[in-house]
């Protein structure tokens, strides 16, 4: 084994994660290699520094409310879902009734009626087209599970 092969073992030695055989192998190498000995001493200083810094434990209150905050997300998601569905239904219904009234109203100019129908038709085509494209991409996208 060459020096670079012992680098992983050096970490294991430092963190006391080696078995007896690995420990023996590494200490034998250490006796013959001043470079690794020096590097190990430097890593020991770094480890000591990192070990002396500990993250503060938050208050018990935080842990007591932890689940409640997650549960609130479930409730709010359901709430927003219902609000969104209701808003879409009401908008479609209201829009449909409004258009129906305009088209059936004999006092409204025919040009406005044709324009309105064309606008709705165009929006419907665009919606279906975008929706179809999205669904197709979702199925075929090879990178969909890759984190961007």
């Amino acid at each position: 084994m060459t020096c670079p092969d012992y680098k992983g073992l050096m970490m294991g030695y430092l963190d006391n994660e080696l078995d007896e055989h690995q420990k023996k192998m590494f200490t034998e190498h250490l006796d013959q290699c001043p470079d690794c000995k020096k590097e190990l001493a430097e890593f020991k200083d770094l480890k000591q520094l990192a070990d002396e810094v500990a993250l503060t434990e938050p208050t018990d209150e935080l842990w007591q409310h932890y689940w409640k905050n997650i549960y609130n997300r479930f409730e709010r998601t359901l709430g927003w879902l219902l609000v969104s569905v209701a808003a879409i239904i009401l908008l479609i219904y209201g829009g449909f009734r409004l258009i129906e009234e305009i088209i059936q109203d004999p006092t409204v100019d025919i040009v406005l009626k044709v324009g309105l129908v064309a606008l709705i038709g165009g929006l419907a085509i665009l919606f279906v087209s975008v929706l179809r494209e999205r669904l197709y991409l979702r199925k075929k996208d090879p990178y969909k599970d890759i984190r961007r």
Binding site: G8, M10, M11, G12, F43, L46
Partner: peptide, 19 residues
Amino acid sequence: KGTVMSRLYYARKKLRELL
């Protein structure tokens, strides 16, 4: 476990260089 040891070595080495 070998990859963990190797990653730790390079992570600590980089950390030392930065410090």
